[in-house]
């Protein structure tokens, strides 16, 4: 049993990559003061794009979603939660419909998985430097804390929100591509299965910083991998209740930390 659990660890490192990338992308966006509930749709668009056009296609898919979301939320000032929900329905509907119409062959798996080390090592390093040690990062975070003050200083808040959204789109696109080309062999309807929503909770658990994002994604990845190990060991643990476990864990994480954390001051406004 212990053996099976230990073997689950390397699996967890790879299997949690889409979640980790989504978490880091959402972290940047929320630091700029936007909640992107459409993250689930962005990931799904990434997976769909990747199944058609490889890693670049995945990023393109997520970028299209970011453009729609950004136009509504940043340009028109639309409600973020309703817009995000609509985006998720849009991508779910259109990819499910289009995949059936296209009936293309599933793409080959990636020969070598460079996305995993990129997600766990390079992205966190870049984010730590850019967000906390550059003027761009300072302005981006200030946009999320006090947009009025940033505008008073003559800096465009819209520009910094677009930059944050662009970063998220690239990361979510990569995450979707990893899901379609590394973890699975191609696209399936609704294949993200709620990872985008879980990512939103992990951002809160990680208290809007990179170290917390890594820790939260790791805990989550391990929980899921252990669940598979238990399932394989088949000790009579009911399979469907195990499937609910990740969501219960996330709920408990939120219950445990939510009251103690401070969100970016202007989040959601």
């Amino acid at each position: 049993m212990l053996d099976a659990l230990l073997q689950a660890i390397p699996l967890a490192v790879v299997a949690s990559v889409p979640l980790l990338l989504a978490v880091q992308g959402e972290l940047v966006v929320q630091r700029s003061g936007i909640i992107n509930l459409g993250l689930e749709g962005m990931l799904l668009a990434g997976a769909f794009g990747a199944a058609l056009g490889g890693v670049a296609g995945g990023i393109a898919g997520a970028v299209i979603v970011a453009l729609i979301f950004g136009w509504l939320v940043i340009v028109l000032g639309a409600d973020q939660i309703v817009t995000g929900t609509a985006i998720n329905l849009l991508v779910l509907g259109i990819t499910g419909f289009a995949w059936r119409e296209l009936s293309v062959a599933q793409p080959p798996r990636l020969a070598s998985d460079l996305i995993t080390p990129f997600a766990w090592i390079i992205v966190p390093l870049i984010l730590a430097v850019v967000l906390w040690n550059t003027t761009l990062g300072l302005r981006l975070r200030a946009t999320g804390e006090n947009a009025e003050a940033v505008r008073a200083a003559g800096v465009s808040t819209a520009l910094h929100r677009w930059i944050a959204l662009a970063i998220e789109a690239v990361l979510a696109g990569l995450g979707g591509a990893h899901l379609a080309l590394v973890l699975s062999s191609g696209f399936a309807e609704n294949m993200t299965a709620g990872r985008g929503y879980i990512a939103l909770a992990v951002v809160i658990f990680g208290r809007w910083n990179v170290r917390g994002a890594l820790l939260g994604s790791a805990i989550f990845g391990l929980a899921v991998a252990f669940q598979y190990a238990l399932q394989a060991a088949n000790k009579g643990v009911p399979y469907h209740l195990l499937l609910a476990a990740p969501y219960v864990v996330t709920l408990l994480l939120l219950f445990g930390v939510a009251g103690k954390v401070r969100a970016p001051e202007g989040l959601g406004r």
């Binding site: 000032g77 639309a78 329905l89 849009l90 509907g93 499910g96 419909f97 119409e101």
Partner: peptide, 25 residues
């Protein structure tokens, strides 16, 4: 044609309502 196209229709309605109301506001 996949019936998920109804989900697409729901999303378009939502997006259109959101876009119009925020434009007016």
């Amino acid at each position: 044609i996949s019936a998920t196209i109804a989900t697409f229709g729901q999303a378009v309605v939502l997006l259109a309502v959101v876009a119009f109301t925020s434009r007016w506001r």
